[in-house]
Design a protein around this nucleic acid. Structure first.
Lengths: 215, 215
DNA sequence: CCTTTTAAATCTACGTCGTAGGTTTCGCTC
DNA sequence: GAGCGAAACCTACGACGTAGATTTAAAAGG
């Protein structure tokens, strides 16, 4: 708890702060996150942080940018078809979400205009266009894909402070179809479920493309 | 500003509180929402609210339940095919999201286990099963649909305090494909865009069903 | 080597928040 | 009309985000 005297450097910079913030959100969740707690974690006065980051909102921007940067690394070779690119992007994104479930909701709420996000989008658009898909399909598909990914991962990671929570026992009388399908609904959050649902979306894109090419 | 004397009824109950809370979030956004502000809106002491609702979290639960209830009304006749049911459900859900853009993020974060949410899900499951879709497809499809809806509507309504924000001017040099498609990306948030993307998802479900029926 | 500048970090303080605990008052039943 | 339960209020506490002023070590200039 040895407090530094004024003026001595604490070695703070945007990067170190962002890394500590990610770790703090990972541990305690978004609700408990705050400037003061982060400062204590860094062994620093709360106001010191403001010399590197404008305020809490900018702090959360830095957090989401930091976790997004993790996903950009494994882009894979460029010589793949658009489906391979889409699948790799989706898997990388999912892995990141599971690595930082408490951070993930931030990404779905804030508009993603950081360079890494735009680069990933551009890769997807380019791969689809190179494959000869109709322009309207190319324009729509990545948005559909990321909408699905955000919605799905938000549900699986739970968004809230304590994960998805156990499925409550459903009333078989009131919901007979759901009750009958219960065994199939049980692999909630599994890798197999993710791939199945991702395939549905990709299938829709593929089919839509085939339909618009020959009208 | 006339404060009531202690003991006299203020006519508070869960329903009235929830309605005022929805109106307050609609007006000022989630960030500015709080127990004290809500109390002032109701002309009431903050602590009075706690006699009807456990705390802020329960208050937000009531808010999301209230807006979800709006969508249950227009279910439509039961004699429709599953696609019609899915489309009507999606449109009703979207209309609700646009009616309460500041509330919507709540729905994507909290697990939806309220009776109205389960009833809507059951309708979808039942319609698909009645149409003879394979069980695995029936089990997955509503989840895929709502994942897409949540992700898409979250992006369109902006989630944050001030809407989606204008698209920043993108660097045509760094992102040539996106720049080329810019005209097609311009109808962000339009009804036509929603229907196009919804069709992609439904197409995927349809195709997946056809593929699994005849293996 | 001494002075001046500059930037980093700290300290103080204000208004707001969620809510625990205690108190007051109304309307009801005996 | 005495007693009681419920509804509302009052007070208070700790935590929050952050504006503004202050301190101090290190860099720059002579």
């Amino acid at each position: 708890m040895a407090r530094r005297t004024r003026g001595t450097s604490a070695g703070l910079d945007r990067e170190r702060i962002a890394a500590a913030a990610v770790a703090l959100v990972d541990r305690d969740g978004l609700e408990r996150f705050g400037v003061r707690r982060l400062a204590e974690e860094l062994g620093v006065d709360p106001m010191s942080i403001y010399h590197h980051i404008r305020g809490k909102a900018a702090l959360l921007d830095a957090v989401s940018e930091a976790v997004l940067a993790e996903v950009a690394a494994d882009a894979g070779e460029a010589s793949s078809g658009w489906e391979e690119v889409a699948r790799r992007t989706a898997h990388g994104y999912r892995d990141m979400a599971y690595r930082h479930p408490k951070v993930f909701p931030l990404l779905t709420t804030r508009a993603q205009t950081s360079p890494v996000a735009l680069a990933a989008l551009e890769r997807l658009f380019a791969a689809m266009r190179a494959a000869g898909l109709p322009d309207q399909v190319v324009a729509d598909a990545p948005m559909v894909l990321f909408s699905f990914l955000n919605g799905h991962l938000l549900a699986r990671t739970g968004g809230g402070p304590d994960g998805p929570g156990p499925m409550p026992p459903l009333d078989a009388g009131a919901h007979p179809t759901m009750a009958a399908l219960a065994p199939l609904l049980a692999d909630f959050g599994s890798a197999a479920e993710f791939d199945r649902m991702l395939d549905v979306v990709l299938q829709g894109i593929r089919d839509r493309a085939a339909r618009e090419e020959t009208p």
